[in-house]
Amino acid sequence: MDVIDLRDFYGRPLGRVAQHHIARRVEQIWPDVRGLNVLGLGFATPYLAPFVGKAERTIGLMPARQGVMQWPANGKCLTGLVDERELPLPDESMDRVLLVHGLEASESKRGLLRQIWRVLAPGGRLLIVVPNRRGLWARREATPFGHGQPFSRSQITQLLRESMFSPSDWEVALFVPPFDWRPLLRSASAWERAGHMLWPRFSGVIMVEATKQIYAATPLPASRKMKSRVRAIAPLPTPAPAPARAVLPEDGD
């Protein structure tokens, strides 16, 4: 979905309900951002408003495939259009990164996560919101969560570890069925409470907070290791002895 589709979704009653319940969980995970630099990636602007004025700096970057829109509507624009594989930010410049409507639609998931790893400061936190493979929202194409690749908890864990992140906290949200039926939406809070207690595995989205592994190293491929070993232990040929030079008699001998 492009930026216009995403904007229109969050302008509908169902989108406002989704925004409300996901934003509550985001604020519970990050209750205090004073003095921190906060980056929103993907289409994270519906969830960045609570951080403006509290964080030291709040910006939103949107991938080129998706498009970009001005945010906030009034005042200085805090958004930009970027290549997700080359974020235009200095190393270790962000303390919090919120990734929404980004990972599931990315064509280079590991490349995106490595860029986030680069710009995230030591001790910084990454919070990812992705569609739950088991939930109803991933099966409903009328919402943004029904597009791209949904994830299970084990899948997102493996992807994070391969990208040098360690999952540290988990949350779930969106248990109300994804339909624009007003009587259903009015009871969304009751659905959320019941879902957390009775069927947490079937939430609409999975939210995972992760920290960067500072001392992780990319292992050398096995083929390169073997070649290096062969070069290290291969004996060098012994130089052949120089041929004996003939001694010519001098004049008078």
Rank of each mutant, 00 (worst) to 15 (best):
G40H: 02
P131Q: 02
E92G: 04
E104V: 03
M62V: 11
R245Q: 15
P122A: 06
S108L: 05
Q66D: 12
R231E: 15
E92L: 01
I156A: 07
R57L: 13
R201E: 14
W191T: 06
V100C: 07
D2V: 14
S203R: 05
L48G: 07
I206K: 11
P177L: 03
G15W: 05
Q149V: 10
G60K: 06
L174T: 05
L220S: 00
L6G: 06
R201P: 01
Q115M: 06
V230P: 06
V230C: 11
E84L: 04
A55K: 09
L248A: 13
V130A: 04
L127C: 13
S168M: 12
C77D: 13
K212I: 06
L185D: 01
L198Q: 08
A49N: 10
K76G: 06
F51P: 02
I156R: 10
G124A: 03
V172N: 09
V172S: 13
A217Y: 13
T143G: 05
V52M: 12
A188T: 03
K109T: 09
F165G: 04
W71H: 01
P131I: 07
T157I: 00
A64E: 15
P178I: 02
E171Q: 12
P183D: 08
F202L: 12
A217V: 13
D8E: 11
A216G: 05
A138N: 05
Q70A: 15
V176H: 10
Q155S: 15
F175Q: 05
A234V: 14
R110N: 13
R24S: 07
L14Y: 04
R118F: 08
K109V: 07
P13L: 02
S163W: 03
R140A: 12
R34C: 06
D83P: 08
H20E: 13
Q158H: 12
D253A: 09
T143Q: 04
R245Y: 08
E171S: 14
G80S: 07
Y215V: 15
M94A: 14
L220V: 03
I156W: 09
P31E: 03
E56K: 15
K225A: 03
T58C: 09
A246H: 11
F151R: 00
L81P: 15
G146L: 10
P243A: 08
T238I: 07
R186L: 13
V176R: 01
E171Y: 11
M197H: 12
V172A: 14
